[in-house]
Write a protein that binds this DNA or RNA. Structure first.
Lengths: 198, 198
DNA sequence: ACTCTATGTAGACGACGACAACATGATCGG
DNA sequence: CCGATCATGTTGTCGTCGTCTACATAGAGT
């Protein structure tokens, strides 16, 4: 029951996913304020109210995109498991986050949008909490190897999350980027991270 | 020609500033998507089109708010001049930024809103560039005192800006805050900063 | 075959951003 | 002191949007 392609399984098509995909494209082109449920319906050739069957409100749509975003970020972070627990894995996780933010800037934007997070669903906040927990555990594991074991775990957590999120934003956001980043950004990013990881 | 108060100089009142003030209040309550020119007009008892005389578009209004925000941030940063150039002043600048973000979260949100920055005016980007330049200079001055003088200035700049902006965001944003911050946040922030400044 | 439910459509309503035509009152040159 | 000019505010309008309601249609399960 899934021999052909993956699409066209229903009434008109797999509208829900089509909406999500097209929405993410549109976000990249015109931003949140340029995204409209009616516009999406138009793009996909369905009636103006069709999207409401899948996302009752625009907030719901953005929320679903954010959920997809966290999932994607989670997946990207798993590559760090190749490194052994400790500073090396933390380094890999930080770089994975920063690279992901650059490669999925639309999703990254949505996840940082106050108006989206203001209406975050229970699912979304739970996912984010899980991601956060993952970092806490890895930091603890690193400290257990002796790395910076004398530092308050809460302080270490704050520092690492701030540095990682901050680097992702600064190197991704156009306004910062124009004035902050230098051509050889990626090697500078590694150097900056290593300034802390030693 | 300016003896009395500063306000009520015209037709109905000092509408432009009233719009800005009320808009910032509304942003704190309902966010960007909850802000409307017509709503502001209603709140201030003027006709629905009156705001257009001062801000031709909603983007213009947000841009003006962002300009005011950078100005406020600039002012708050000047307190750091009390410390001598070097790591101490950098520390003061970083903490001033983070404290400002907490005390003016609406302005901080606007300055980090991709949809606002997408339409940033020449004035705004120039202001931000000036602020950025200020940091570069202070970092250079600190290095001239011998502090981390062997580190590439670009890397140092990236690191400090990322850490500062990241800390401000992580400790300000509700979603992060709920999962990242601990009760004694402010002292943890100082400890986190000092982890780098030594 | 019949029903139930998931999905899509058609139409309506109020709010909004934006524009144009018009009104009013302050300012300034004479 | 007066009339022109321009900044400011108002009324009316248009197209778009989010959202709701009533209705249509197609699969799934009995």
């Amino acid at each position: 029951m899934r021999e052909d392609k993956v699409n066209a399984p229903y009434h008109h098509g797999n509208l829900r996913q089509a909406l999500l995909d097209r929405a993410i494209e549109t976000l990249g082109e015109k931003g949140v304020e340029g995204l409209s449920l009616r516009g999406l319906a138009r793009d996909l050739g369905v009636s103006h109210a069709a999207p409401l069957r899948h996302f009752a409100t625009k907030s719901d749509l953005l929320n679903a995109i954010a959920v997809e975003g966290v999932g994607s970020l989670f997946a990207a972070s798993e590559a760090a498991d190749a490194d052994p627990p400790g500073p090396a894995r933390l380094r890999a996780m930080m770089l994975a986050y920063i690279d992901w933010a650059k490669d999925h800037s639309e999703l990254h934007h949505i996840l940082r949008n106050p108006d989206v997070m203001r209406h975050a669903s229970e699912d979304l906040t739970t996912l984010i909490a899980g991601f956060s927990e993952r970092w806490r555990e890895e930091i603890k594991a690193a400290q257990d190897t002796g790395w910076r074991s004398n530092v308050d775990p809460n302080v270490l957590f704050l520092h690492i999350v701030s540095l990682t999120a901050g680097t992702a934003i600064v190197t991704t956001e156009e306004v910062y980027q124009r004035r902050v980043a230098t051509p050889e950004t990626r090697s500078n990013i590694e150097a900056s991270i290593d300034l802390f990881l030693r």
